[in-house]
Amino acid sequence: MIGTSPTVTHLYAQAILQAAQRRGITLSDDITRQVVPGQRVPLAVQDRLWEEYCQAVDDPLAGLEIGLALQVGHLDSAGMLLVSCDTLREGLEALVEYAPVVGDGGEFSISEDADWISLCYRPEYRVRVAERVDAVMASLVRLAGWATGEAFRPEILLLAHPSRGDGVSYRERLGMPVVFDADCNCLQCHRDQGDLPLIQANSALRDHLRQLADHTLESVGHQSLSGQVSRLVREHPNWGKERVASELAVSGRHLNRLLADEGLSFKVLRERELHRLATELLQAGQTVVVVSERLGFSEEAAFARAFRRWEGVSPARYRSGLSSGE
């Protein structure tokens, strides 16, 4: 982030204050009064919150407990966006893109191969790193379980730090094997888990929350590369990878490498935005021909094939269903 100081949403900072309250701990007024509703909290203040809280509780599993108690609302609009997506895979991709809404200090990436989905987290802070990583990874397990109606079955959690206290306690609380002193912090699950539907899926709410999250990222001067690519595709749906890359002053190949660092690809982002635009335009009453041209398809048949892949029905039938109230 350029020209701005790192911050976190006040809602995430409140998670620590609430944890202290549950334990009957009073934190310093000069710290707590800096957590103001509606105002982002400087990361330096969050550092002090973590330090003072961990010193007061003197519990090696303090971070784990905070993570397991975390609610969707503590993650601001990014949390609501995650759980309003259609599938777990889409929700995790949204988390990678919009994590800075929650706060600076760490970065997510997602990768997928023939067997596994891996969601990794790289912390960038220096204060109470192990406790905060515990909180982040535990919150992912909890929220993914809640969002899928407890259908989520993660396979293993890798943590880069040594075991804090009794390693068995991690497995008991998280319900999965935990490996310590790993090369990275990574939650892994079988690939088919990505297809799990989310119980709070709501496409209209999801799209609205994306707009709010985009606004938040812009207001704090932090828009991820994937966010910039998504914006350009929405504004210029007929642009291909090379044209978008040129606008961002990089080559197409370099753009792919940079997006891969975020666990995404240009193809995935472009497909997602075209899909979203197509449904929005059809819902607004635009004809199939107009939408096809607006999205830059060479012919209507090509658009119809793509739309059928996205929605499972032809665009004409989708539009007809809207008008008939199906």
Rank of each mutant, 00 (worst) to 15 (best):
I199G: 00
L157S: 09
L212Q: 00
G221L: 10
V220H: 05
R191G: 01
A144G: 10
E150S: 08
S169I: 13
A245I: 07
V268Y: 08
N185A: 05
R173M: 15
F152L: 11
I199N: 03
L209P: 00
V220Y: 03
D214V: 00
E235P: 00
V179I: 10
L143F: 05
D195E: 04
L140K: 11
H215W: 01
L187E: 12
A182T: 02
C186P: 06
H190V: 02
E262T: 03
L196V: 00
S224R: 12
L232T: 02
L205R: 01
A147Y: 02
G252M: 07
V168D: 15
K267R: 14
Q223R: 10
L209A: 00
H254K: 07
N238G: 13
L255N: 04
S163L: 13
G263I: 11
C186T: 05
L174K: 08
T148C: 04
L140E: 09
L174P: 13
G263Y: 04
C184T: 09
I156T: 11
L269A: 08
G167I: 14
H190Q: 03
W239D: 08
L196D: 06
C186R: 09
R210K: 02
G221D: 08
R270P: 11
A260Y: 05
V229S: 07
C184E: 15
L187P: 10
L157N: 03
V220C: 05
F266N: 10
L255V: 05
E242V: 07
A249E: 14
V244G: 05
E262Q: 14
P154D: 13
S163D: 13
R270M: 06
P162N: 11
C184A: 14
L248W: 04
G167Q: 13
S203Y: 00
R173P: 10
C186F: 04
A204I: 00
C189S: 06
Q228C: 04
Q188G: 01
D181R: 11
H215S: 00
L255Q: 08
T148M: 05
D166E: 15
D183T: 09
L205N: 01
Q228K: 09
H161K: 07
S251V: 02
I199F: 01
P177N: 12
N185R: 10
S230G: 08
Q200A: 12
E155C: 08
P237V: 02
H254P: 04
R191D: 04
N185H: 07
A151M: 05
E247F: 03
I199A: 09
A138S: 14
L264S: 14
V179Y: 13
L209R: 00
A249T: 11
S251C: 08
V178H: 10
F152N: 07
L255A: 09
D166N: 15
M176C: 11
A245M: 07
L159H: 05
C186Q: 12
R257Q: 14
S169K: 15
A138E: 13
E150F: 06
H254F: 08
L225H: 06
V220A: 02
H161A: 12
L140I: 12
D183L: 03
S246Q: 14
A201Y: 02
S163M: 13
Q188H: 01
T216D: 13
A147S: 15
K241D: 03
V168Q: 15
V250E: 08
